[in-house]
Structure formats: structure tokens, C-alpha cells
């Protein structure tokens, strides 16, 4: 599914609004949204999954304005992975993934053998087979994230929106989740905190600051030391890894030359 965002402007509040944001993601492309806290990443994502209506501009899925679509119709095209504060109700892993079938179901429609196949397949693809009857609350952060991705797979969506999918995850799970997202072959838009991970796993980067686009394009063009330094207000240094990849690392602007403070 191709996603076009045209001049999207969202006046949520003066500070966190998005202003005139335009980009497109081709079918199967992975776009990473990078920017400091409060730069409008989540707001932009929420406008893409139809929670916030832009005051100006359009979001289109395969050329159709998402606000012209029925919410359920969009839900069959586009799935969202966000971790929300959990309510104290114990759903099992199967029940969570089963929610992904909801946009395909009528009110009194029963879960069918076909649904069970989708669920089994989804859990298999995220490596969570065997955990079907565990309660969601007992899973680790990485397992939860994978179950939520399994839900989006059961949803059979062709596009995925993820808000900080690697948040609170150990390094290994961060890499696993991003590998998994890449391996799905669906269009993906995700807000990513870690700039080096974003550069490594995304086809394109949208760099945001104060609700505006500071750069959009391939990672090596957007995530340059000077631009990142500008947007994040840090000093950026680059290093080349033995395999040729360039990684960035960061220091506070006025801490140049100082030894890093030891934390004890």
C-alpha cells in the first residue's frame, strides 16, 4: 500500500502541531520518523491512522483520502502498533491477536477456523508460537511488542504504523523487532528514537523538528552529522565501522573535550 501525506497541518496546540508535512512512502517501503521529543512525530502518526484530522492537507492510502474511507475499511488496510497503558484485564495472547480480525468481522460474526489459521500464522511469524494461552500482562516488553505485531499481521493490513517499536526493549529485542518489521514486506511508517537504528533499518527518513520537516529522503542524505546536530542541538561525530557503515555518536554541545562524567 502506498501512502501519500500532502501538506498535513494539525493545530493540536501551538507547540506540538504539525505544519505542512509532505512525504510519500511507496508500497513496501519503510519510513523512519526521527526527531526530538515534542517534534510532532506521534501527532503525525496519529493523523495517519485517522485519530487526528488534519486542518489542512490530506493523507491518502493508495490514492484515496483516508477520511473518505470507513474506519473499518482503513483498519483492513493499515494496522497500528502502539503500546498503551494497560488496563487491568487479563487477555490471553490469542485474544489479543484475535482483535486483529475484528475489522473483518460483523457484529455477531463468530471466530472461524479461517481466523484461527491467520492467528496461528501471525504468531508463528513473530516467533510467539506456544504462548497462545499466556496472559498478555505476563509477557516481557519484547514479547508484548511481538504479539502486537502479530495482531497487525492477523489484521492482514498492507501498511503498518509503529510508534517507537523499540522503546523499552533490550538491544537484542530492538534488533529482532526491526528485523521482523523489515521481513514482513509491508509498508511501514515508524517513529524511531535511535538514529543509528533508523538509518540502518529504514529506506527513508523523515526528520522533524517543531512540527516541521527538516529533511526527507534516504538515511545517508538526511541523517547527516550537521543536520542531526542542528535538529537535536547536540554535537555529532561520525565513525566508520569496519563494514563501511557510518554511525553517529553524540555529545552535549559544550562538553567537547571534557571527559565523560562518571556515573557512580
Amino acid at each position: 500500500m502506498r501512502l501519500d501525506v500532502q501538506g498535513v497541518t494539525i493545530p493540536v496546540s501551538a507547540v506540538f502541531a504539525c505544519r505542512d508535512i509532505t512525504f510519500e512512502v511507496p508500497a513496501g517501503g519503510v519510513l523512519g520518523i526521527v526527531g526530538p521529543n515534542g517534534s510532532g512525530k506521534s501527532t503525525l502518526l496519529r493523523s495517519i491512522y485517522r485519530v487526528l484530522a488534519p486542518s489542512d492537507g490530506t493523507v491518502a492510502s493508495d490514492g484515496r483520502d483516508i477520511w473518505d474511507m470507513d474506519p473499518r475499511e482503513l483498519a483492513r488496510e493499515l494496522a497500528v502498533v502502539v503500546q498503551e497503558p494497560e488496563a487491568e484485564f487479563d487477555f490471553t495472547v490469542t485474544e489479543v491477536v484475535m482483535m486483529g480480525r475484528a475489522p473483518h468481522k460483523s457484529a455477531f460474526g463468530r471466530n472461524t477456523a479461517e481466523d484461527a489459521v491467520y492467528i496461528r500464522d501471525a504468531l508463528d511469524r513473530v516467533g510467539m508460537t506456544g504462548a497462545e494461552r499466556r496472559t498478555f500482562a505476563t509477557l516481557s516488553g519484547g514479547e508484548k511488542q511481538r504479539v502486537l505485531i502479530a495482531r497487525s499481521l492477523a489484521q492482514q493490513a498492507r501498511a503498518l504504523v509503529l510508534d517507537e517499536p523499540t522503546n523499552h526493549l533490550d538491544l537484542r529485542y530492538q534488533l529482532e523487532i526491526l528485523d521482523l518489521i523489515r521481513s514482513l514486506g509491508v509498508t511501514a511508517i515508524m517513529a524511531v528514537h535511535d538514529i543509528n537504528l533508523a538509518a540502518r533499518y529504514c529506506d527513508a527518513i523523515l526528520l522533524m523538528a517543531d512540527g516541521e520537516v527538516c529533511g526527507v529522503g534516504p538515511p545517508e542524505e538526511v541523517l547527516t552529522a550537521s543536520l542531526v546536530a542542528d535538529v537535536f542541538e547536540v554535537t555529532v561525530k561520525t565513525a566508520q565501522l569496519p563494514d563501511g557503515r557510518v554511525v553517529l555518536y553524540f555529545e552535549r554541545p559544550n562538553s567537547q573535550g571534557q571527559a565523560p562524567r562518571t556515573i557512580a
Binding site: E73, V82, E84, A87, F108
Partner: peptide, 24 residues
């Protein structure tokens, strides 16, 4: 209510999730 059971479940996961599953 029984007919709305799936949307009610979705609410338990949170507003963003419910919205993204097509249930404002």
C-alpha cells in the same frame, strides 16, 4: 452489547488501538 463485544474489547486495549481497529 453482545453484538458490540469486539469493540468493547478494543476499548480495553486503549483508545488508539480501538481507533486503529476501525472503532472510533
Amino acid at each position: 452489547l453482545i453484538g458490540m463485544a469486539r469493540p468493547i474489547n478494543a476499548l480495553l486495549f486503549g483508545d488508539e488501538t480501538a481507533a486503529s481497529l476501525g472503532m472510533p
